[in-house]
Design a protein around this nucleic acid. Sequence first.
DNA 1: GCTATCTTGTGAATGTTTTCACACTCTCCC
DNA 2: GGGAGAGTGTGAAAACATTCACAAGATAGC
Lengths: 214, 214
Amino acid sequence: MPVPSARPSKKISESTVRRLSLYLRFLEEADGNGVSTISSDELAQRGGTTSAQVRKDLSVFGSFGKRGLGYSVPELLEAIREILGLGDAWRVALIGAGKIGAALFSYRPFQERGFHIHAVFDSDPAKIGERWGDLCVRDDAHLEQVLAEQKIDIAIVAVPGEAAQAVVDRLAGAGIRGILNFAPVPLHAPGHVPVRNVDMVVELEGLSFALHNG
Amino acid sequence: MPVPSARPSKKISESTVRRLSLYLRFLEEADGNGVSTISSDELAQRGGTTSAQVRKDLSVFGSFGKRGLGYSVPELLEAIREILGLGDAWRVALIGAGKIGAALFSYRPFQERGFHIHAVFDSDPAKIGERWGDLCVRDDAHLEQVLAEQKIDIAIVAVPGEAAQAVVDRLAGAGIRGILNFAPVPLHAPGHVPVRNVDMVVELEGLSFALHNG
DNA sequence: GCTATCTTGTGAATGTTTTCACACTCTCCC
DNA sequence: GGGAGAGTGTGAAAACATTCACAAGATAGC
């Protein structure tokens, strides 16, 4: 009988974590609507999965529900926030001040979930010095220095594919803890630095495949 | 002994298609560098997987390599292009002319791979009429009409989460063939309309989880 | 307190994806 | 033309993920 815990010993699958993230969103919405209790089945329908899957996902971390009743929305909300490490704000740097960088810089959902951008870098002299909100776009020559000064945890890489690996090497060297990559190339980072890829081309080509093949 | 074919009968896994997309990129690069032959192992290292995985992925579609030698770069390139349905250009519409929409509109990698945006929509009167390249941002009231006129295949949804499901319902009703969704909500579309989600929040939260848990 | 009803938590079964390991084919060189 | 080396294609095994199905805990009504 597992006790609720955010640090299970055994390995958690990436798909479980992905789904937790979705459950969290639905819980936030339900909470906002004053719903106080929710069943695995409701959670499942919303997230496009099954109730058994929801229960399995949660059971990895503990027992959060009440049999016959379901889950307390505020409690589960809090539990998943803790599991996902969203308790404190994360300090984020944005590398690349192009159009994508600009879109991410003011992307509300990031801010709302505690991902705060504390530095923006670019290598283009035309961009360096631009005022973005209460930050200035900085010369990426100062990357290592500013990363340390600002105690940055996570870097969002939004540079062209050709430049991405070099940036990642520097980030890793500077002790970054995690990387979210928007460049359409698979990146190589040291094993202890998790990298997540948001590859829009892969997704679009996946769609192309699905349309092309019946 | 399977013959090379782009229309295998059995179901192809999503991860296989994703990886094909990555192999394709590396092949394009190798081809650009004048490399004429490549092994599954080289392909694997680049894509962060194993040579057995590469061979299995390809074997689903046929036999493309030569034993003892590897794969002919131009041949495999062409084969994967065909498998992914990248032979002809796709006609794309962009729904949502905010910052993300703007970034996607001028995203080179889409254009280079034959995804051409032929219409941009928004519901904000301040945006409607803006000139974007050689297009005008159109009132999304005309969505259905323009989709048909322009023979649009794929819609890229870049609207706020709250508005996304309604947009998808209209797109599905208007006979769209596929949807690439950037809104941070799981969308429900009819079974015959494939939907791909690019959920940046899920990825960032996945990173948060990884950092928080050892 | 008893019964009926609901919904969780979870082993076991099933299904899917990845990895292993090796027979087989092709090339090159002597 | 035969032997060595390289690297594919693929069944079989292992790992991993999802679904099933049901016992057990919780509630509500009487």
